[in-house]
Design a protein around this nucleic acid. Structure first.
Length: 271
DNA sequence: CAATCAACCTGGGTGC
DNA sequence: TGCACCCAGGTTGATT
């Protein structure tokens, strides 16, 4: 599922593939995913050129030459694909943005949770982005991280995945970071010791960078902008490894639920 | 205000 | 083989 490394991979792909192209048309068979509406989005974007593409948390922003912005959230199964116009339809293709140069930017989404939203100006974008906590590979320094953990009695894994507190971390990288730091995901965040906080901070950075290096985790549905799989799933430490051996101590990886989400960890070495 | 939980969806898997 | 049922997960919004 697209988390920070997956969305960042797509951002880099798109920057290379569709920069400077003009939007010629937009179509959808899933109107709820185009916000506020297909008509309004078309009115505001057709004729404009793509100027730059940025990412904040798991949200992509496509900046246009007329000052408008298209925000894209992939949620669980969203894909952004750049194809030639005559390429065969993609699986679950629901939004088609026709571009100059015989290209299309396609939004495909099995579960239809994702969306593309028109943002009128920088002010509206700032409001949307202000909800997000600091970026783990940028604005989140150790001091802030410490304060964030100290501020909550919820399980540390929940805090890592809380977008208001820290941006971009989802289930896969939260599990693996906690494994590297040898911390039990159920522990109240505020009970994590100073030494452990530092370990977790470094572990988070390490797993996210690995995720980017391997171009994301294609465990289920994730593909990059050219429809290629990433390979971080070949390097999962805990995620999806229920019943398998812990790479560290040889113990058995367990699966439990925290906050209704599947959680993988080694009870023997994560304390 | 924090925590919990259903809802949004669909395909894949399970059990009868 | 068919069918009911459950589950996955990011985020929102309602409820406690």
């Amino acid at each position: 599922m697209p988390e920070l490394p997956e969305v960042e991979t797509i951002r880099r792909d798109l920057s290379r593939l569709i920069m400077g192209r003009k939007i010629l048309d937009i179509a959808t068979d899933s109107p709820k995913q185009v916000q506020p509406s297909l008509v309004e989005v078309k009115k505001a974007t057709v004729g404009a050129k793509i100027k730059k593409i940025e990412r904040r948390a798991k949200l992509l922003q496509i900046f246009l030459s007329n000052g408008k912005i298209l925000a894209v959230h992939l949620k669980l199964t969203g894909r952004l694909l750049v194809r030639k116009r005559d390429a065969p339809k993609d699986d679950w293709q629901h939004i088609t943005i026709v571009l100059s140069g015989n290209k299309e930017l396609r939004f495909a989404d099995l579960r239809k949770f994702g969306w593309i939203r028109l943002i009128k100006d920088k002010k509206e974008l700032e409001k949307l982005l202000s909800e997000f906590g600091p970026e783990p590979l940028d604005s989140l320094d150790l001091k802030k991280f410490k304060a964030i953990l100290a501020s909550s009695g919820r399980p540390v894994k929940i805090v890592l995945m809380d977008q208001k507190k820290i941006s971009g971390v989802g289930n896969i990288y939260a599990n693996d970071a906690l494994f590297l730091a040898k911390i039990d995901p159920r522990r109240p965040a505020k009970k994590i010791t100073e030494k452990e906080v530092k370990k977790l901070y470094q572990a988070l950075e390490k797993v996210l960078k690995a995720g980017i290096k391997f171009r994301g985790a294609s465990d289920q549905y994730y593909l990059d902008a050219l429809g290629r799989k990433g390979s971080y799933q070949d390097h999962f430490l805990t995620y999806g490894r229920e019943g398998k051996k812990c790479f560290d101590c040889g113990g058995e990886i367990k699966r439990i639920k925290i906050g209704g989400r599947g959680t993988f960890f080694c009870p023997k070495c994560q304390k």
